[in-house]
Computed example of a mutant assay.
Amino acid sequence: MPHRSYDHYCAVSRALDVVGDRWSLLLIRELSSGPRRYSDLFADLPGISTDILAARLKDLERDGILTRQRVGPRSSMVLYELTPAGTALRPVLDALSVWGTPLLNRRRSTDAVRAHWLALPLGRAIAQHISSGTVTVRVGDTVFHVVADRAGSVSHHDGPALAPDLDLDLDLDTAIAVASGDLPLTAAASGFE
């Protein structure tokens, strides 16, 4: 498929030429906490077709947003990982998450949900209560950790932290309530007073 462009001499237009296709930013969201296999991406993006997933991965690799590498015995497994250019999109995801959080409202019966999709708003909620540190977050079977620093930067990563300052265990409904702003983190967990 030829590379499409808005053909506007504008920074926003050029950025959208690279990441503006449907599913692209959600793929970047999936990769923002660490490398993923194709099957993991497919499983965590309900509604995407295999053709579209393969096309978006190829486009994002061509544009320098992610890399594809074979790993493991006989290089049979392929991992996708963000490049520094892809990682630099984190503030864009954060801004979209801040803007979109009030739109969450009530969860519809047709809405897919994955606990790790809550990492951005949960990370913001955690950062409001700790000036810096690392917090392991468990939501059901999903485990990730949030790192906040004194400069106000917040990131999330797959798996538990090696030496967390705090542990946060939430069920999915409580995590959704905290992420959507319906429940303060202090009411959901101890250690965040």
Rank of each mutant, 00 (worst) to 15 (best):
P2G: 10
H3M: 04
R4M: 14
Y6Q: 06
H8I: 13
C10A: 11
A11H: 01
R14Y: 01
L16I: 01
D17N: 01
V18D: 00
V19R: 04
D21T: 10
R22W: 02
L27M: 07
L31H: 12
S32G: 06
S33E: 07
G34N: 01
P35E: 15
P35T: 11
P35C: 07
R36L: 03
S39K: 12
A43F: 08
A43S: 13
D44Y: 12
L45F: 10
L45D: 04
P46F: 04
T50G: 06
D51V: 13
I52V: 15
I52K: 14
L66F: 00
T67N: 05
Q69A: 12
R70P: 00
G72V: 07
G72I: 09
G72Y: 07
R74S: 09
M77S: 13
Y80E: 02
L82Q: 12
T83W: 03
A85K: 15
A85G: 09
T87P: 01
A88R: 14
V92N: 02
D94Q: 09
D94S: 07
L96N: 09
L96R: 08
S97Y: 08
S97C: 14
T101Q: 15
R107Y: 00
R107N: 03
D111P: 03
R114K: 10
R114W: 10
A115S: 14
W117M: 05
L120W: 11
P121G: 01
L122F: 06
L122D: 00
A125N: 08
A127R: 12
Q128T: 08
S131I: 13
S131W: 08
S131C: 13
S132D: 11
T134C: 12
V135R: 02
G140D: 04
G140M: 05
T142H: 06
F144V: 10
H145T: 08
H145K: 01
V146P: 08
A148S: 14
R150D: 12
A151F: 00
S153G: 15
H156M: 02
H157S: 11
H157Y: 12
A161K: 06
D165I: 08
D165M: 12
L166K: 15
D167K: 13
L168R: 03
L172K: 07
D173P: 02
D173V: 09
S180H: 07
S180Y: 02
G181R: 05
L183A: 05
T186G: 10
A187L: 05
A189T: 01
G191T: 09
G191A: 10
